[in-house]
Design a protein around this nucleic acid. Structure first.
Lengths: 120, 120
DNA sequence: CGGTATCCGGTACGATACTG
DNA sequence: CAGTATCGTACCGGATACCG
């Protein structure tokens, strides 16, 4: 497991340069809304309306955009049921679960330290 | 250790709402350049010029802005030496080291999976 | 070397209205 | 219910020039 930038670079030179795919993934996952949508999905499958309500302050437009991007990346799965009224459910893919296993420790740390950081 | 959003919320209701400090910290740390600057600093102390060269594509303006924000958050420490020519060094604070310990596993995962995610 | 000041364009984003 | 379409704007971020 890498613990420094130097080690990452040694394993794969050119990592996180502008053209590197890692930069793209980083932008998608760490985007303002991406991480919050993913966080909400760690609870399990959610419907569109549930996501909209659970991610405080997100607009319909950004929810749609974010979900499409993450679905294209294979991190989120979209399942629509041909019913009336329509029902669409979103969940993490196995890859998404793996990703969030790495993100959750960070979120926990932020939760604990945020007050102290912002207050200063 | 929390592994789901539900658990985070149970520990601290209102977490990651718009006004929550966690949102602010998240925005600073996960910003486009913030995470890359921090990543570079995991190697140890770096001078301004080194940072500028190591973070591919960053402008002077954004490097300055990012460093000021992270320094104000107590994540990065700035040390200037009264010499001619001037020398300024940046390093992670203990808090920054703690933070990056949580971020590095994520970066490693992205490094390994990025190609596969973007290619699809 | 290590910045700051200023200008400025693209786009990320929000608000609103509308639809299958 | 689950979106798309359209429009308008704030601000992020790049380019350039300059300073101690």
């Amino acid at each position: 497991m890498s613990v420094s930038y130097a080690q990452l670079q040694q394993e794969s030179p050119g990592i996180f340069t502008e053209a590197c795919p890692s930069r793209t993934v980083l932008d998608h996952v760490m985007s303002k809304w991406g991480v919050l949508v993913l966080l909400s999905l760690t609870d399990g499958t959610r419907r569109w309306g549930e996501l909209r309500r659970s991610v405080d302050g997100i607009s319909e437009k950004m929810l749609a955009t974010t979900l499409r991007t993450l679905a294209a990346d294979g991190i989120v799965e979209r399942t629509s049921y041909p019913e009336v009224p329509p029902r669409v459910e979103y969940s993490l893919t196995p890859r998404g679960v793996e990703l969030m296993e790495r993100v959750m420790p960070l979120m926990s740390w932020i939760q604990v330290n945020a007050d102290d950081i912002v207050r200063r």
